[in-house]
Design a protein around this nucleic acid. Structure first.
Length: 275
DNA sequence: CGGGTTTGACCGGCGC
DNA sequence: GCGCCGGTCAAACCCG
């Protein structure tokens, strides 16, 4: 697995209000989303600690799990950067982990079932965690939800989105961490082959929008990597700062390990962010 | 009425 | 072969 770890800090999600910092880890290209998030299925800890063995899928009903409003991380102060113009009264607080996967996948769909078109090839994925009250973070693109499923061993459902731009088959999955309901885990898959929709661009002018050179934020990582300058230089320092932490996470490798730490690092981060 | 969401059905992969 | 599961489809539904 190749891993390019990408890390973005608080300002990462300007659209959504974002103050956040992220950490990352890298998953194996083949592991399932779940695995990727929680570690190898056989991984003890998870099932051991969490699962009552019986997966309660019915849980779906409460699609909004009683996420306890994070009281811990107060960061309301961060609203700063965000020029949240309005409607979205989102107050995301923090963000965090990023993981990136290279498309080291090469086995073409053999099976030849699907002629032409896109095989089942798994595209590069990129994930990160965000401390947020809203599940779906605004990232500049338009998404259409095409499914929702109960997540095994988790009270929170996972939502599936697809970029609405035709021809663009970027997908994204969003789910809340079952360990810390205040954390949203977003995973992007594929690369956008087009610019950010003009409509949305309006609000974000100055952020990603008008970058003449860019043909459009290709991959989330790129966006994230760009954002620092867009926001402030302080973030750059944070970048390094977190990078170290991320490295550590990387070593641990499992998100489950990460999460707990996350809360800690977030506090620190906030400290720094408190501009 | 167009575009997005909801939600149960469906499908393919995988382990037993 | 069977059942579990993650992921996707698509009809029904909702909303501006």
């Amino acid at each position: 697995m190749s891993e390019d770890l990408y890390y973005r800090d608080a300002a990462t999600f300007p659209y959504s209000g974002g103050d956040s910092h992220l950490q990352m880890f890298d998953p194996s290209p083949y592991m399932s989303f779940t695995e990727f998030l929680h570690g190898p299925t056989d991984h003890n800890s998870l099932s051991a600690t969490y699962g009552p063995s019986k997966e309660e899928e019915k849980a779906v009903g409460g699609r909004e799990a009683p996420a306890t409003p994070n009281s811990s991380i107060s960061s309301s102060s961060m609203e700063v950067a965000t020029t949240e113009e309005s409607s979205k009264s989102k107050k995301e607080k923090e963000s965090s982990i990023v993981k990136h996967e290279e498309n080291s996948k090469n086995k073409e769909g053999n099976k030849g079932k699907k002629t032409g078109e896109q095989n089942k090839e798994r595209q590069p994925r990129f994930a990160f965690m965000t401390k947020s009250e809203v599940d779906h973070l605004e990232d500049g693109y338009r998404w259409r939800k095409y499914g929702q499923k109960a997540v095994k061993n988790s009270p929170n459902p996972r939502s599936y989105y697809r970029c609405t731009t035709q021809k663009c088959n970027v997908k994204k999955r969003v789910e809340r961490s079952f360990q810390d309901p205040s954390i949203v885990i977003t995973t992007y898959e594929g690369q956008h082959s087009h610019p950010v929709p003009a409509t949305l661009r309006g609000n974000m002018t100055g952020l990603f929008g008008p970058s003449p050179t860019l043909k459009g934020p290709a991959f989330p990582q790129e966006l994230l990597l760009q954002m620092p300058h867009l926001y402030s230089d302080t973030s750059i320092n944070l970048y390094n700062h977190h990078r170290l932490q991320l490295q550590q996470f990387h070593d641990y490798g499992l998100l489950q390990d990460i999460i707990p730490h996350t809360s800690i690092s977030q506090k620190e981060a906030l400290g720094h962010f408190q501009i």
